[in-house]
């Protein structure tokens, strides 16, 4: 997993690079738009981390240029701009995610992973959270190294929750992907599947929890007290 970090503050760039390397990413760094263009010609990157205020121009301009070339490399915008319209304009310009400074490395790493897992990007076939692992190709679940059996619908549900571990997955999104368009879905059908999956995970001593967010959806939370999650102030 190779990232290109485009950030003009050398100290901050150094800290981000070291932090992400500690999380298993390979990070190249440049401080200007021109440098970024040059680096992208030589290497192909799985993800761009882009600061908006750069010495030789606005990062949004680079973002538009990349998208104009039909380049679908995921781009995560890192910025000090947290204005009311900044996030929207960043996403409109083609960014895949938007993170306002200051942030913490685990959060940044989680967002990077989430972006790379997206369909179309390099897709890891093994999803893991806590002691739960899911092989998306084999459709097999392993909990603490011992494989367990589960019906396809529960595997699908677990996959969706694992892909967005630490985040809330909307009920509507789960219903849409778990049931065929024309299938009759009773209001409690999803709840029943979630409940069965919970029991199965608990029976196998999984250390993750599936939490209900009433009226919104479900979230799979890692056992550690502070899983990667968005900071409220920077949404």
């Amino acid at each position: 997993m190779r990232l290109l970090l485009i950030e003009d503050n050398p100290r901050l760039a150094g800290l981000i690079r070291d932090g992400l390397q500690g999380q298993g990413f390979a990070v190249d760094w440049c401080g200007t738009i021109a440098g970024a263009e040059a680096a992208m010609q030589v290497n192909s990157y799985d993800l761009l981390l882009l600061d908006l205020g750069l010495p030789d121009g606005d990062g949004l301009e680079l973002l538009r240029q990349v998208r104009r070339r039909k380049d679908t490399t995921p781009i995560l915008v890192l910025t000090a701009r947290g204005g009311l319209d900044d996030r929207v304009s960043g996403l409109d310009a083609g960014a895949d995610d938007y993170l306002v400074k200051p942030f913490q490395i685990p959060e940044l790493a989680a967002r990077c992973r989430a972006l790379m897992r997206r369909p179309g990007a390099a897709l890891g076939t093994i999803l893991a959270c806590g002691n739960v692992m899911l092989d998306t190709a084999e459709r097999s679940i392993t909990i603490a190294t011992s494989p367990i059996e589960a019906p396809p619908r529960e595997v699908d549900l677990l996959e969706h929750l694992l892909r967005r571990a630490g985040h809330v997955v909307a009920k509507a999104a789960l219903e849409n992907s778990l049931y065929a368009m024309d299938a009759e879905v009773t209001p409690n059908a999803l709840e029943a599947v979630v409940s069965r999956l919970r029991k199965r995970l608990a029976a196998a001593n999984a250390d993750v929890t599936v939490r209900t967010v009433h009226g919104v959806g479900y979230a799979l939370l890692a056992p550690v007290a502070a899983p990667a999650m968005p900071k409220a102030a920077n949404a």
Binding site: G166, H167, V168, A170, R211, V213, G215, V216, G217, A219, L221, P227, M229, P230, K231, A232, A235
Partner: peptide, 8 residues
């Protein structure tokens, strides 16, 4: 908002 703040 609830989705974003629920994990926290």
């Amino acid at each position: 908002v609830v989705s974003q703040l629920a994990p926290k």
